[in-house]
């Protein structure tokens, strides 16, 4: 099916915002990614599902330029960038991440300085991008925290004193502070209480609709993917085994593994 889709005639001439081609990566004998390609179009939410070890988080880390593949290329349709982003050095990657790519990790320790103020965590992103005026830093941090529906009276509390849901909102504020071209979400609600999870997803959905932020959402939770994604990619053993419109993948899954996954959920 995917072979057919790749050759499908096109009506809309929208260029993908993000295009990863032929990514492979091995760690010793373990093949983490095996010839994975992905396209993300402007304004859409691409959901990536798969069990632990399927390669979905490795793929996301490559989208965030934290890792490079053994082979493959990565293109972002933005001005002044090279054809293959993996050619960028560490400093250039850091600048690109700060300015154009936002990320929310499952584990807030990966994204935040837990003992610094929440507002300071958000401002740090702006500092890296070159903003130096204190008043501007503070104001922009507040705007981003408000957009993430974080309670402003607590903006100077360090994340370590906050609940899990609030920590994710700080990460989200940091990720959107500079209006990124793409927002990467790595299991952003995993481990949260169900009610808190619903509220965080709701904030994401609202942001997506109001700002048309392009998002890539990785989750093993089909419910989360179903709520958020326009298109879905299913990964297993480092390969993409199925991709399609979200409703199609959930209602008419083609691959044996996807059928098991969907039926197990229902």
């Amino acid at each position: 099916m995917s072979a057919l889709m790749k050759e499908a005639p096109r009506l809309v001439r929208t260029q993908p915002l993000m295009e990863l081609s032929g990514l492979s990566k091995s760690y010793g004998d373990v093949r983490a990614l095996d010839d994975v390609s992905a396209r993300v179009y402007p304004g859409e939410v691409l959901g990536i599902v798969g069990e632990s070890g399927s390669g979905k988080s490795t793929l996301l880390r490559m989208m965030n330029l934290e890792e490079s593949p053994d082979t493959g290329s990565y293109r972002l349709d933005l001005p002044e960038l090279p054809e293959d982003l993996f050619a960028l050095d560490r400093f250039e990657r850091r600048m690109l991440r700060a300015r154009r790519i936002g990320i929310v990790y499952q584990n807030p320790h990966l994204g935040l300085l837990m003992k610094h103020s929440s507002s300071g965590n958000v401002a740090e992103r702006l500092l890296v991008a070159g903003e130096r005026r204190f008043a501007v830093l503070r104001e922009k941090a507040q705007v981003a925290l408000e957009a993430s529906e974080f309670p402003i009276p607590r903006m100077d509390a360090p994340p370590i004193e906050l609940s899990g849901g609030m920590q994710q909102r700080v990460q989200l504020a940091k990720a959107i502070a500079l209006e990124p071209a793409v927002l990467l979400l790595d299991e952003p609600t995993t481990g949260l209480d169900v009610s808190v999870q619903a509220l965080v997803l709701d904030t994401l959905k609202r942001l997506q609709q109001e700002r048309r932020i392009t998002m890539v959402l990785v989750s093993h939770d089909l419910g989360v993917i179903r709520t958020m994604a326009d298109r879905v990619m299913v990964m297993r053993h480092g390969r993409v085994i199925e991709e399609g419109l979200a409703d199609q993948v959930f209602q008419d899954p083609q691959h044996n593994y996807t059928q098991q996954l969907v039926h197990a959920k229902l």
Partner: peptide, 29 residues
């Protein structure tokens, strides 16, 4: 929402005629 296994769905869109049976996901969306 369901993928056909054979046949054509020629949709006469304002932007041209497209076979929805095998159109790219982004076009369907």
């Amino acid at each position: 929402s369901y993928l056909p296994v054979a046949g054509h769905l020629w949709f006469h869109s304002r932007e041209g005629v497209i076979d929805m049976a095998n159109a790219a996901d982004i076009d369907v969306a």
